[in-house]
Design a protein around this nucleic acid. Structure first.
Length: 266
DNA sequence: CGATTATGATTAA
DNA sequence: TAATCCTAATCGC
């Protein structure tokens, strides 16, 4: 489930549990054997999340860069760790806790300049306090591309994935194909605020929730999988009962309600 | 047990 | 636009 909220939650969890401690590091699968050997026995100094990227800083200066891609997964463990499950690229643990990392798109040791390059190619991350909405607005108002495309472009907005894209556009009644530059400043501001609010909620509950839990008479953590989303992969619109449409946009499947998200201004 | 699918992204053509 | 990479869960037979 790796959209930006997952990454920021991971960073917070790992910061709390592992920063300042000395870690044993291995690569049970062997594909990160050299890196694991370099990190083994080092103290972790910091964990940073930026968009869908994670950066782990170590005492000797190496930076561990991880990108989960579509399937990457961290599994938390208590010490002693269980037998590795599946293809474990990276395993690390301290006296009390540890984790396994399976199937990441990227898992590499880099230096400061490479980190700067990676971060330099990323757009505004709604979950970062240093995000600059003015810079984003500037991009949006000049772009001929569809808003549904821009939201997935990591060099424009960092951390938003296919689920948040569909959900946020639905919440604001925006058709995914609407050219970005036709958005009003108010529409943009509202979109940005929703992105920040929902992704923070996502970090808190470690899952994407875009509905109002109160309407189900529940706390957010008690919502079932079927209740959490408004349009993504749904058959029928929760608001108007129209059949949800889906098509390809930006190499991914977009979902939208033809009634609640008209292409023309109402 | 094989096919299918997935909340991602890059590279080649 | 297509091919490719990375892994696990689910579904149909």
């Amino acid at each position: 489930m790796p959209e930006g909220h997952t990454i920021h939650r991971l960073a917070a969890d790992h910061r709390k549990r592992f920063v300042g401690t000395t870690l044993q590091v291995r690569s049970p699968q062997g594909r990160f054997a050299d890196g694991a050997e370099q990190l083994d026995g080092q103290t972790l100094l910091d964990v940073e999340a930026w968009g869908k990227h994670l950066f782990y800083r170590w005492e000797r200066g190496e930076i561990l860069h991880i990108h989960l891609g579509l399937y990457g997964k961290f599994r938390p463990h208590r010490a002693p760790l269980p037998e590795p499950q599946g293809q474990v690229r990276l395993r690390a643990w301290n006296e009390t806790h540890g984790f396994d990392l399976n199937g990441p798109n990227q898992c590499e040791l880099i230096g400061e300049s490479t980190r700067t390059d990676i971060v330099g190619r990323l757009g505004e991350d709604p979950l970062r306090p240093d995000a600059d909405p003015e810079r984003l607005w500037d991009r949006v108002r000049r772009s001929r591309a569809a808003i549904g495309r821009l939201l997935l472009d990591q060099s424009v907005v960092a951390g938003v994935g296919n689920v948040y894209r569909a959900e946020v556009l639905f919440l604001h009644g925006l058709h995914p194909e609407r050219p970005a530059r036709t958005l009003s400043r108010d529409e943009f501001d509202a979109l940005w605020e929703t992105l920040k609010r929902l992704m923070k909620l996502g970090v808190r509950y470690n899952r994407i929730i875009t509905v109002d839990a109160a309407e189900f008479g529940k706390t957010p953590s008690r919502l079932t999988r079927d209740e959490r989303l408004l349009v993504y992969k749904r058959a029928e619109c929760r608001r108007c009962r129209s059949t949800i449409e889906d098509w390809e946009l930006g190499a991914r499947t977009i979902y939208a309600c033809p009634t609640c998200q008209p292409l023309q201004e109402a």
